[in-house]
């Protein structure tokens, strides 16, 4: 039967092709002598493109490639807690401090900062444009019941947003307050489509604003706004005493690199549309103990 042998040939060809693909797919995970470095970070740093500037330089220096997992701060810390990543770069100081207290994190350093802003539709239905006190602005939003889109994902931005509502003495409940459950970029896009307000870090805002139908209504401290909108980023290694398999040496090398004059210069020089997105905070002449020890009176307690 000729066609049966043809069928066999066809099957063999298809399966061999698939096998070839498969073997290379599994072989594709190969890594150098010092392994890969897995960095969990927030969508805000990843989507802005900052790591596309930093990581090639790190790889050139150390010969180690960096795998970046971009998720919310809460998820990034959870991955660290499980030992699935080697270090985390996040922006929720209280959550970071708790992570250190639990012993999962080690050697925290301040890296950089920018600030949060409140964006919303250009016609400013809540009349908050230019307000200097962020909690006053939030009270106006709640009073006018204008749409506010929250991340709702335990990310650094979400944690900050909940903290600010608490500061304003408002429990946001109602049709006007909605959760996207998604990353910063997604949430901005959704807010733009809905004509809603949202809290956003300036980095993501600057990277995306030309594609959005939103304007800045409440400025952060970088433009003379409320200091409670400051947005500091910290980096910390996963404690190798708890997770011995993590690439601790390279994690420390990365922390060293990103807080070195070279790394800090790269951060300062990173611009989108001519605007600086992040401001280096890793190099300070003073002792800066605050970056190592949980600081009780920072004023950004975030219990949500």
């Amino acid at each position: 039967m000729i066609d049966r042998s043809k069928l066999t040939v066809m099957l063999v060809v298809v399966f061999c092709t698939a096998l070839m693909f498969g073997v290379t797919a599994i072989g594709g995970a190969a890594s150098g002598p010092l392994g890969n470095l897995v960095l969990a970070t927030t969508t805000s740093t990843y989507d802005s493109g900052l790591l596309h500037i930093l990581n090639p330089v790190f790889t050139d220096l150390f010969g180690v490639r960096v795998k970046v997992i971009s998720v919310g701060t809460g998820a990034a810390l959870e991955l660290g807690r499980r030992g699935d990543v080697d270090l985390v770069l996040v922006h929720a100081r209280t959550a970071e401090d708790r992570f250190m207290e639990e012993g999962y994190g080690i050697n925290r350093r301040d890296v950089m900062f920018n600030d949060f802003i409140i964006v919303g539709p250009a016609d400013d239905p809540a009349m908050i444009y230019g307000m200097l006190n962020v909690t006053d602005a939030l009270q106006q939003i709640a009073m006018h019941e204008v749409l506010f889109l929250s991340r709702g994902d335990r990310s650094g931005t979400h944690i900050r947003e909940r903290f600010l509502w608490a500061e304003a003495g408002i429990e946001p409940i109602g049709r006007w307050y909605q959760e996207s459950g998604r990353g910063m970029g997604d949430t901005l896009v959704q807010a733009s489509l809905m004509g809603a307000h949202t809290l956003v870090d300036r980095g993501t805002w600057l990277a995306m604003r030309e594609r959005l139908d939103l304007v800045v209504l409440v400025e952060g401290p970088l433009r003379g706004g409320d200091v409670r909108l400051a947005n500091p980023y910290g980096i910390l290694a996963i404690n190798p005493a708890i997770h011995p398999h993590v690439n601790y040496i390279m994690a420390m090398a990365y922390i060293g690199f990103i807080t070195s004059p070279l790394g800090q210069e790269l951060i300062a020089g990173f611009k989108r549309n001519g605007e600086q997105l992040f401001f280096p905070a890793g190099l300070q002449r003073g002792p800066n103990f605050a970056q190592f020890i949980p600081e009780e009176c920072r004023g950004d307690d975030d219990r949500d």
Partner: peptide, 13 residues
């Protein structure tokens, strides 16, 4: 490349 490899390998298995 990655899309095809992963999908074909999964299909094979």
């Amino acid at each position: 490349d990655v899309s095809l490899r992963v999908a074909f390998t999964a299909l094979l298995i």
